[in-house]
Design a protein around this nucleic acid. Structure first.
Lengths: 233, 233
DNA sequence: ACCTGAACACCGTTCAAGT
DNA sequence: ACCTGAACACCGTTCAAGT
């Protein structure tokens, strides 16, 4: 299960900020974000924990770097989607495809959303992503004021993720709920879930942030925004 | 600056889960969530860290309890708003007022959103809040299936908060950006912010999750949902 | 210039012992 | 039954020293 990369025989590659950040992403991918400690990160790189401090000031900068790497992947992915808005009405399709492309990157780094949300400073790659979003919406005919509101309204969904309020962690087994007692305390939720389960037998009580729900959410927002868009007549 | 409550002369009140949770909220309110450690929490209660483990299994349970206390306050606040839907079309106003009431509670506990999002298990008080939301929307004429989608789409906004992607922390001073260099790399964002600043000179580069943006976001969602609502004819 | 060993000040948590 | 002191296994980080 260990992801420790065995030291190759050849001359050892010197550390660098970039190598530190990439190793951090790899470590989080393999063992989860809680495994990303300075000591384990150094081990992964075949160095001592204290050596990292020659390349980053502290752990916060490692997390900043991790966001930069992932946001960089997102920018690569959306670059492949493109940003051309042939006619204003096309804005929505372009934005939608880009957001879903960003989401695919996020799904490869399931720990990333919590790290993105923990950052309080601006990240150049994240800014670049939003800059293009602004450009696309402006080509769609929105005023900058509307775009500003739109970015707030989309929030993290613009980057392809939405923190779910009920999201049982992969590992922890919830105690099996006593349905009779639940029905008394949260009758409406129980009715709703019974109904949803009836329509879709595969869905579970611990409902997940699945693709359908994510798309429903962005469409609700994008459609709502489209209605506000000043249309040339 | 210390919030340590001096020991009263009288007989000391025994610890209890409830007292532990309430002290935890008080500690986070006063000194931020990073100050909430088992050792400092015990100190606040005039006990040793290890005494806490007679009432909670671990720190995770303390955080669960903290969410329960805050969600309890939210439930008290929305109870004062009420839940009556006189006619179906009223659903939106009722939900809107309840969400804004929840938001007021959250603003009193600015550290709370991150704790809410860190919980992976269901919390009885949070469930009770959502249960009533389901009831109100059903009275508004929505199908349970639609309500299910709606809860996903609202996400944390239902509870009165939205994690902002750009949210400079109160303490950390961002380096002053070099406007000329920025204009080259993120021209659209720079234009947008110049425009927004022109319309509203009080707004700053580090834009905050202010009331206007929050209301814009929920109205976009609630209006969008209202359009999907099956209307009796 | 780049790396490291030992140490420091903190965590959450366990354990055996106190009343 | 309830609380505690000492200890353990971890953190992030500092410092003085090595090459």
């Amino acid at each position: 299960m260990a992801t420790h990369v065995e030291q190759e025989a050849g001359p050892r590659i010197p550390l660098s900020r970039r190598r530190v950040f990439q190793a951090a992403v790899k470590l989080a991918d393999a063992n989860g974000i809680e495994a990303l400690t300075m000591r384990r990160l150094a081990e992964e790189l075949g160095a001592e924990a204290m050596s990292l401090y020659h390349h980053v000031a502290n752990k916060e900068q490692v997390l900043d770097g991790v966001v930069e790497v992932v946001a960089g992947e997102i920018n690569d992915a959306v670059d492949r989607v493109g940003a051309e808005v042939a006619k204003p009405a096309d804005w929505k399709g372009v934005v939608r495809r880009r957001i879903l492309a960003a989401r695919e990157v996020m799904l490869r780094h399931k720990w990333a959303p919590s790290v993105f949300e923990s950052r309080t400073n601006m990240n150049p790659e994240v800014l670049r992503y939003h800059d293009q979003l602004v450009g696309i919406m402006h080509a769609g005919g929105f005023t900058y004021d509307q775009i500003h509101h739109a970015l707030h309204a989309l929030g993290s969904r613009a980057l392809g993720f939405s923190q779910e309020m009920f999201n049982p962690a992969p590992g922890d087994s919830q105690p099996v709920p006593d349905m009779a007692a639940l029905a008394e305390q949260i009758p409406n939720l129980v009715r709703m879930l019974a109904d949803v389960a009836h329509d879709d037998p595969d869905s579970t009580l611990g409902w997940c942030d699945d693709q359908t729900e994510f798309e429903f959410g962005i469409d609700l927002l994008l459609d709502g925004l489209d209605r506000l868009r000043p249309k040339r007549r």
